[in-house]
């Protein structure tokens, strides 16, 4: 064990609000994920899964504790450094999709590439390929309002994958998909994980989907209640 883990959370807490209305969403989370792992995160609603994912994706900062990415203390970075880290390494699928309204599936998918300096034709090509992976190439010109919930979710997945991230953070990526489509997405993620070593952290409520992962982490009340990896150790 010489290499540091890709991702490491040490005693991370997150408090929302102040004073009497303050709410502690994370109460000391320790988590370590190695490069190339495929981790499923489960747990009841409100247990802090999305909060932890947001911190991992550098979209939010911990209230206390340490977050190390490749051994670097992320919580000590400034905004700009965090933004660069996010751009370089993370693809994020939001629980609520968060697509740009009035913007075609293709342009939504291509959005991360604009910020990575790709030119128009290269963006189009990569975005179409990503849409093809999730089976939506026929819907490239449609705006989110013209897509079903499941289709929007798949656009969000395509957008997270298009930039070839090191880590895919997917918050319930199959929540709105029928089981067949959900399995299709899982096969895709498994293939990406196996073939190109994509590290995946995926929140899911469905044991069927979690079964695709190598490891399952269970949250309860802002803490990690169970972790396959620890049991194995």
């Amino acid at each position: 064990m010489s290499l540091p883990p890709l991702i490491e959370l040490r005693a991370v807490t997150k408090v929302f609000g102040e004073g009497p209305s303050a709410f502690q969403a994370l109460r000391g989370v320790d988590l370590s994920v190695s490069r190339g792992e495929f981790v499923a995160i489960m747990g009841p609603s409100g247990s802090g899964k999305s909060t932890a994912m947001n911190i991992l994706g550098c979209l939010d900062t911990p209230s206390a504790g340490a977050y190390l990415y490749e051994g670097v203390h992320v919580e000590a970075l400034d905004r700009g450094q965090r933004a660069r880290l996010r751009r370089r390494h993370f693809g994020f699928v939001f629980q609520g999709y968060n697509l740009l309204p009035r913007t075609s599936a293709l342009e939504n998918t291509a959005l991360p590439l604009i910020y990575r300096g790709l030119r128009g034709p290269a963006r189009r090509k990569a975005a179409l390929e990503a849409l093809d992976l999730v089976g939506l190439s026929a819907w490239a010109r449609h705006s989110p309002a013209e897509l079903s919930g499941g289709q929007q979710q798949r656009v969000a997945i395509a957008r997270a994958l298009v930039s070839n991230p090191t880590v895919l953070l997917a918050d319930e990526p199959t929540g709105n998909l029928d089981s067949e489509m959900g399995r299709g997405i899982m096969d895709l993620l498994t293939a990406l994980n196996a073939r190109s070593g994509l590290t995946i952290l995926m929140v899911t409520h469905e044991p069927d989907m979690a079964a695709y992962a190598h490891r399952t982490v269970r949250f309860r009340d802002g803490r990690i209640a169970a972790d396959d990896a620890r049991q194995a150790a």
């Binding site: 994706g57 979209l59 905004r79 700009g80 933004a83 660069r84 996010r86 751009r87 994020f92 939001f94 968060n98 697509l99 740009l100 959005l111 991360p112 910020y115 990575r116 957008r159 930039s163």
Partner: peptide, 15 residues
């Protein structure tokens, strides 16, 4: 919200 999305998918503040 739009700005949040842009930042989340990789935009820097300057962009």
């Amino acid at each position: 919200r739009e700005i949040g999305i842009r930042l989340a998918v990789g935009a820097l503040e300057g962009d």
